[in-house]
Write a protein that binds this DNA or RNA. Structure first.
Lengths: 226, 226, 226, 226
DNA sequence: AATGAATGAGGGTTCATTCAT
DNA sequence: TATGAATGAACCCTCATTCAT
């Protein structure tokens, strides 16, 4: 069996703890409150988690691990740096949006907690960020992303945007749907905010004579980067 | 006089408090430690600040106000949405870089503090963010920024990137110089990361049947934003 | 059989408990640690001993009982109060020296524990002290020990010395060998520390007038202790 | 003024703490109880003493220091190793007898506490024990104590006897008066418990004829030690 | 205005002990 | 019989805050 009684109870505590940690500060949250919510004694909480902080850090570990596992299944199907980057951004936004308590905890409390950086959970989170960087570098190598840009900056921009939106979502309730931002973010990041007189979103309407059929061979664009 | 004895003492407390709050958590910092650093009694701290939290919130108020005053002097000289946006980004990065204790406090503790949002200091910070939004909207109106982009998202991207870099700077010590990132950020935000296959250097080789002559009318490019 | 599986397990727990109690305080020692050392569950410890304190008190009982049994075999062969007293002192010092964990426990923790005085183990220890008192009284009756000395004080001196040495041995590691102290203690206790200017070899030269003849009746020595 | 308000309050806490520590174990004693007895808040106790253990150790420090100061005034007036040794023994017994709570604490809890050995209070106690050793050595040098005895053993015997009696006094209420034991202890230690067939306390009753007057010249004892 | 002194309020953590299996 | 699991009950200690001087 995947979940025995012990695991169930552990998960129960984690779940209730998440709900409370997400609403209050770590400091404001008491073990008493958590144990009460989980309908166990305070001592029982300490049976499963050595300290209050360990309990705190155990929460993102579980969720992050599951999210990564899930995501790793999808990634192999995606080809091309752009779609992979997009997929990662989508994964972040979806995860945060679908798990508001989790994202609140991560964004408002863990991300700036120095001790969290020493955590297994953080290592997991880092691994996805590493994946993102890999994809960006792949894109540069492949030529779909500009050669002379700092991949770290690109990542910072993507993650920074996501985080900023997520934090505002939690603090102000806006925007209401994070997941809606995948494409806008991708577009902005890929193409920039500046209009292009001869710019990128160009579409060419070819009004071809009726008797001309456009075949595939007719159209062979070539990359010639600056 | 602008600074009498009381103001001096108050500023002294603020200064010492900043230094300590920047190193430790709000919770970890004690009034005892601050009063010791400021060489006054704990009770004296309470003469100037009603609560520990009020003291915390009083710190960014002073620095932010000064930074804004400074910046407001410069802004009128800048014309054009792009240069104004750039100026604001630069102002942020410079302020954060030159005041590490301040930026550490803001990034790691205040930005995620719900009660901070009710603060005069926060209103000030918000005013700059409002200015940034104005500039972006101006740029859209002026036509230098794309019409169909969300100005809020653009701002989120700019601020998010700045914050992300700043946080990493504090937590990991990298990058070493925030101010260096003004231009890279502007370039990336303005132009995007994507090379433009259909971009400036794009060439489409149309292998049209011989009897088809390409006329000007056949080709009518249009902006069609996603 | 004297030792079935249960007894074996019980003795195992006792043994491990002794080792730990001897190193730490009773309060510092946890059942968890003992059970771990004995490779049984905590609940099992409670199968054999009702409380932690009962476990503590069960330890000296076993060792003391065995030591007494051993000693009782020897005592009948000893004649004369002096040699019997000496034998008891030697028995104490040898027992303490050969069982450092036991003596540490007794000296540093049990001897001053009021509840230990209600214990069967204590009764056993007392019985030897009683024997010592008997021997001292015998010696007084026999005339080898001074009549007007307090036998309780003599015993207090012997036991106090032994205990003092034993405690110092445990706390400071000196002296290194308790058993070496049997004879010095006996000598000091029997003969005292004082040199005797008017000592054993005293001779009094009585220059009596010539006409006085010393008769036997004139000379009747009596003990008169101070 | 020798005792300002702060010292008074501190002493009050010490006094109440002593009363309670003497009745219960250190572990059994709670700060709550002490603070209640001293009519201050628990927090106030911690204003004066960093930890419960520091409070415990502060008690003997005060009493021991005062006792030593007192004793040091007397010692210079005493000449001769014997009288000085006797004085120290008397000082011990008197101190313990007059301060039963203190002696209970020292005998039943502190003497066997390993951390107490690192204490200033212990250093003070040690200093008296050092004085005792000095006196014993002086006596050996002066020839009033036997040359070939171990001065450490003599001290162990004196202190061990005192401690043993004191512990029994606390645990069993006997003997009722410790101070009565000064002379018996001294006699026993000096002269030993053994009767001396040719021994020292011999007195010879000379029933001389009436007409014989014993003159000083008649009696000329000579030292001739073995 | 400045502070020494006092404290109320609170929470994390530890374990001996129990009990159902 | 053995034990995994659960918990009740305690307590030390910290500090922000107050107030009389």
């Amino acid at each position: 069996m995947a979940t025995d009684a012990k695991t169930t109870r552990r998960n129960n505590i984690l779940e209730k703890a998440l709900a409370i940690f997400a609403k209050k500060t770590f400091q404001e949250t008491t073990i008493a409150e958590i144990s009460k919510a989980a309908r166990v004694s305070e001592a029982t909480v300490y049976e499963y988690f050595k300290t209050k902080e360990e309990l705190l850090f155990a929460i993102p570990e579980k969720i992050t691990r599951e999210a990564i596992e899930e995501f790793e299944k999808v990634l192999p199907y995606l080809t091309g740096a752009e779609s992979r980057v997009r997929a990662i951004v989508q994964a972040y936004l979806t995860l945060y949006h679908n798990n508001p308590e989790y994202s609140s905890l991560v964004m408002l409390q863990l991300k700036t907690n120095r001790r969290f950086l020493q955590t297994r959970a953080y290592k997991l989170i880092q691994s996805i960020a590493g994946r993102l960087l890999d994809c960006i570098n792949d894109g540069i190598t492949e030529g779909v992303f500009k050669k002379n840009t700092d991949p770290y900056l690109i990542r910072a921009m993507l993650l920074g945007t996501i985080e900023h939106l997520c934090i505002r979502w939690h603090l102000f309730g806006r925007p209401s749907n994070l997941a809606d931002y995948v494409d806008p973010i991708m577009d902005l990041t890929f193409n920039g905010m500046r209009t292009r007189p001869a710019g990128k979103n160009l579409s060419i309407h070819l009004h071809l004579p009726r008797d001309v059929t456009l075949t595939h061979e007719m159209l062979s664009p070539e990359d010639n980067h600056s």
